[in-house]
């Protein structure tokens, strides 16, 4: 059961709703909009109130659905596989965030080569030559397509590419 995660999500949504209502109330209400009786803050405040209410309902629901623990289903992945999956997800996510941080520093091309190389090395464990080939091919292909053919200026690094 992922009750704690559900509750955390519900709590975050309630907090966001409160923040939104607080900010919406503080928004100015220009005189020319007063004829309609609705200003820039009314609609967001309304949406935030509904979201807060639904999130609170969701929070309560996590307590109501508690029942006897279900028997383990046949064919469910074992713990070792789940652990490996979780590790793969964390590594993959960290590499992706690192890649996005690297793009404005080194430029798109170099950052992408580094990302694809490390991503395939960590996740796929293919032969080094194949990994290096793909790490070069995918970014260069996309760089040529966007930068040269479609003239979309991609972020450049200190080396001009």
């Amino acid at each position: 059961m992922s009750d704690w995660r559900d509750r955390l999500v519900a709590a975050v949504l309630v907090c966001l709703s409160v923040l939104w209502v607080y900010k919406a109330v503080k928004l100015p209400f220009p005189s020319f909009t007063r004829v309609a009786g609705i200003g820039p803050g009314h609609y967001p405040a309304g949406v935030a109130v509904i979201m807060g209410f639904l999130a609170a309902l969701y929070f309560i629901q996590t307590f109501r659905r508690r029942g006897p623990s279900e028997p383990e289903e046949e064919g469910e992945p074992d713990e070792a596989v789940e652990k490996a999956d979780r590790r793969a997800l964390w590594f993959g996510s960290a590499l992706f965030v690192g890649y996005v941080i690297l793009v404005p520093i080194t430029g798109f091309l170099l950052a992408s080569i580094v990302f694809v190389f490390s991503f395939i090395t960590v996740m796929g464990q293919y032969r080094l030559i194949l990994t290096a080939f793909l790490a070069g091919l995918i970014p260069i292909l996309l760089w040529v397509l966007f930068n040269r053919l479609l003239t979309v200026p991609l972020p450049k690094g200190p080396w001009g590419f």
């Binding site: 995918i138 970014p139 996309l142 979309v152 200026p153």
Partner: peptide, 27 residues
């Protein structure tokens, strides 16, 4: 293999998002 496909899609997602407004905010 899914890993190669995923790496391609992730790079493509970054390019795609950047080219919406030529800004890193979308990324």
């Amino acid at each position: 293999p899914p890993v190669i496909m995923s790496s391609f899609i992730l790079v493509m997602s970054v390019v795609g998002a950047y080219s919406i407004n030529n800004s890193l905010i979308e990324v």
